[in-house]
């Protein structure tokens, strides 16, 4: 970026070419993910893979947005670490909860709604 020599050190304008390139890549990926989802059968993608593929594409798109639109590529390591730690903690939250709730789903499904204790409003109605 030779034409930006007089800019302060914290100012990194991204090249328009790069931004447009990222944008078209994102559009391509969006169309691609809709197509694979809509006609995965015809493309010969097993149904079990369509969801992981969609999520991988989403992650790739997320990477492009983070790295270039959000300037993470040029950002301080600490900021990147801070942001990524949020995903780590969200993953912790999801995984532990998933692990636990998986064990008692039967109890919820076999729960007979009619046996629910009456709530205050129902009791009031009856009285």
């Amino acid at each position: 970026m030779s034409d930006h020599d007089n800019l302060p050190s914290f100012c990194h304008p991204a090249a328009p070419k790069l931004l447009f390139g990222v944008f078209f890549a994102l559009i391509f990926l969006t169309i691609f993910t809709v197509v694979t989802s809509a006609s995965g059968k015809w493309l010969g993608i097993p149904p079990a893979f369509t969801f992981p593929i969609a999520m991988m594409i989403a992650t790739l798109k997320g990477f492009l947005v983070c790295a270039f639109f959000m300037h993470m590529w040029w950002d301080k390591g600490f900021n990147i670490m801070a942001f990524l730690s949020s995903i780590l903690f969200a993953a912790l939250f999801i995984s532990m909860t998933l692990m636990d709730t998986g064990h008692y789903q039967d109890a919820i499904e076999s729960y007979d709604v009619k046996q629910m204790p009456k709530v205050a409003e129902q009791l009031a109605d009856e009285a």
Partner: peptide, 29 residues
């Protein structure tokens, strides 16, 4: 300001995480 906004985004991600948990659980179960 930059660190501040990144930390704010951290709170946003975790704010949405609750809904992603609900989504993941119901989709799995």
């Amino acid at each position: 300001g930059k660190l501040g906004i990144w930390l704010f985004l951290v709170t946003e991600v975790l704010f949405f995480s609750g809904l992603f948990v609900a989504y993941t659980l119901y989709r799995n179960h």
